[in-house]
Write a protein that binds this DNA or RNA. Sequence first.
DNA 1: CTGAAAGCGCTAACAT
DNA 2: ATGTTAGCGCTTTCAG
Lengths: 353, 353
Amino acid sequence: MAGRAAPRGRKRTTITDVAERAGVSVPTVSRVLSGNYPVATATRAKVLRAVRELDYVANAHARALAGATTKTVAFVVHDITWPFFAHIAQGVEEQARQEGRMCLVCTTQGDPERELEAVEQMREQHADAVILVGGGFEAEENRQRLVHFARLLDEAGSRLVLCGRPSPGDDVPATIVEYDNAGGAFAMTSHLLSLGHRRIAFLGVRPGFTTVVERVEGYRRAHETFRVTPDPTLLREGDFLRSYGYEATRELLAERTDVTAIFAVTDVVAAGVLHALRDSGVRVPEEMSVVGYDDIPMTMELTPALTTVHIPHEELGRTAVRLALHRHESTVPQHVVLGTHIAVRDSVAPPPM
Amino acid sequence: MAGRAAPRGRKRTTITDVAERAGVSVPTVSRVLSGNYPVATATRAKVLRAVRELDYVANAHARALAGATTKTVAFVVHDITWPFFAHIAQGVEEQARQEGRMCLVCTTQGDPERELEAVEQMREQHADAVILVGGGFEAEENRQRLVHFARLLDEAGSRLVLCGRPSPGDDVPATIVEYDNAGGAFAMTSHLLSLGHRRIAFLGVRPGFTTVVERVEGYRRAHETFRVTPDPTLLREGDFLRSYGYEATRELLAERTDVTAIFAVTDVVAAGVLHALRDSGVRVPEEMSVVGYDDIPMTMELTPALTTVHIPHEELGRTAVRLALHRHESTVPQHVVLGTHIAVRDSVAPPPM
DNA sequence: CTGAAAGCGCTAACAT
DNA sequence: ATGTTAGCGCTTTCAG
């Protein structure tokens, strides 16, 4: 004897039960359910009735093992409660469903170790695609790890997708779906510069963190274009927390009075900035302009409504899934950059004086 | 011959490859990896080395099929971009990971049909638990469907969990994790009544939708307790959208002037309410008190900061997973109601005059 | 159009 | 402590 005693879940109805009840063979049931093979109408009817009567659903694992595709897409994010990720996840889920896939999620809380574990787990699950969402650190070690994952997944017939993260190198079997991160920051900074702002603080620099690096680059390029030399002490290091925006702003105000605009690395940080300015009695935008990045719904609730850079979150997610699953079609590119644009609201004005 | 030609993904490394490379039998590799069986140290080392060299990961499907448990937990939500759901999801994910499970997500956009499909899919996946998050309609048909699902999942050794939705009946094999929805509304309404408010509008009634029904019930009970008869025309039907809050408030203001407080069914609706009041020149809280429900982070950004009912989102999610997975332990209850409480902020004051 | 037979990769009794 | 064997539930050649 072999196999094991039913581990806890007792009798699940299997395809054999259906076959017996319908008075046909197992493969016939399989054919009816797959629907990709000729089956007599009467037979099909018998089978379907048995299926219904028994409340049968196929065992996805058996199916996957026998060779049919997995029908799952995996996505790995830092934190699903951050609107930035939630909205991308939304796009992923939508497209996945449209393509007949289920979604596996993993959150890493920004921990590279957990990202690693997550990818391993996804590999075990044989997901059709593994989508890594959001920025990461540029360290060579990370880059190599990504390349390695890309190859492993590729060999296994799956696909690594980097969504909102730059390519780890040419010739890596991965799908890259970026948004024009630097471009958005460039446009926003230009917007401020063209209004006359010359001392624009950038809050939330994180050396080596891709997302931020790109945003800072856009900030710099705009300054160059306007032939303005940005004051390096105006670039402040920080994370993505609201509390950071608050504190950094208080410090900034305590230190100097020449700043006329604040570019927060994310909308959430900008919320903290606005709060600090209100607490300090600095009027926005009359005395200080404030801008953010991401365009999450909350920006509408801020006072004043926040001018920010719009990212096509849902489309990023949808595109990630679509490109990965259709990578074998010749018309489907494997590296795209989606556009960003400024959403002008009420938190920007020309500098005072 | 049988089996099928590798469908697209070519050679995945299997346990057999590892066994060969390590010079041991397949079950030995299995034992090393499961770690629940004595294995000679030297053998273990050889195996682990082979695993590393080959970048081997076990095939989750084969494993599941052979009887080991699935190691996945599924959750079904309306919309992952709603903070209410995202935060519960966060708790689910956290606890699932802690219990060594992966997470499957499905979003239904509130469509009962899609909820049905989702549960079917989850059944195929043999998730260890299927967590339905959020309210639903009370229709008898839905109730029966839930009971049916509960039984099917139970028979299959899985578990239906209702998170933030009342029990569909006694004697149903399901885990219920609620929050004190009516209690929160009761406390909030009492808060307003005790400050002297007598005309409290409730925006967002949805007949038959569990979440709302309970909130309205709390509203009513509080009125009874204060021996105030609520004006039925003050209960307005609507959905969970910000735009509804806006429009309903404009209408309300156009119709009558005696209302001194507005209870919005959710914080998002409250955001619309506040916006409408600002546009109408009604000061909050001096001329009108406004409260919400859910306590999502955004409430801090509203002007004024919103007084609302706090729901322990993360804990709901964590509890759902924990209770479901440990349902066989005698100390683990299968129906809990987590507490809610008011979070007092700046949007409430005594009525004018 | 349908059934018989083989095998996907793994785990769990059964023997040593 | 390790190898042998059987089988999880399904899909897929291959025969008829």
